[in-house]
């Protein structure tokens, strides 16, 4: 896989600001963003930025990384239940020495997502880390 500049430009709202969608007709809140509400099938969803806090729903540690992630391995990944409701799949950051557990509070941070490719630019995006100011 090569890094495609327009692709990551397109994703900047979701990757940097956790922009998803809200349905104008029902309480549905979605990440990643959608055009059509999967619950009530309403089209024309609005942009909705998630607050970036949540709790850990599940986690794993990747020991067999795919191409493009070798320098980070082993790294932790998780699913996070956002405060507004949806689940998000993500990498977990700052987990060295942390005993990860289901239910622990986590928060979004912006980090380098993968090894830089031959073109030299770096892809940044959201990861989640154990929430600061809390007992770890």
């Amino acid at each position: 896989m090569t890094v495609e500049l327009p692709r990551y430009h397109r994703l900047r709202g979701a990757y940097y600001r956790l922009e998803g969608s809200a349905c104008p007709a029902c309480p549905g809140r979605y990440f990643p963003p959608r055009a059509v509400c999967p619950a009530c099938r309403t089209a024309g969803l609005r942009m909705f930025a998630f607050c970036g806090r949540g709790t850990l729903y599940s986690f794993s540690r990747v020991l067999q990384p795919p191409r493009g992630f070798a320098s980070m391995a082993p790294y932790a990944v998780g699913m996070v239940r956002l405060e507004e409701g949806p689940l998000i799949s993500c990498q977990l950051a700052d987990t060295d020495g942390v005993d990860l557990s289901i239910g622990m509070p986590v928060e979004m941070v912006t980090r380098k997502l993968r090894d830089a490719e031959e073109h030299g630019y770096i892809v940044y995006g959201y990861k989640f880390r154990p929430r600061l100011g809390r007992a770890r």
Partner: peptide, 21 residues
């Protein structure tokens, strides 16, 4: 591609997330 693979979440990792839960 944009919300799983680009984050280094492999197939084994996706299934590991299910299994842990």
């Amino acid at each position: 591609a944009d919300y799983e693979a680009a984050h280094g979440i492999t197939f084994a990792a996706l299934n590991a997330l299910l299994m842990r839960r």
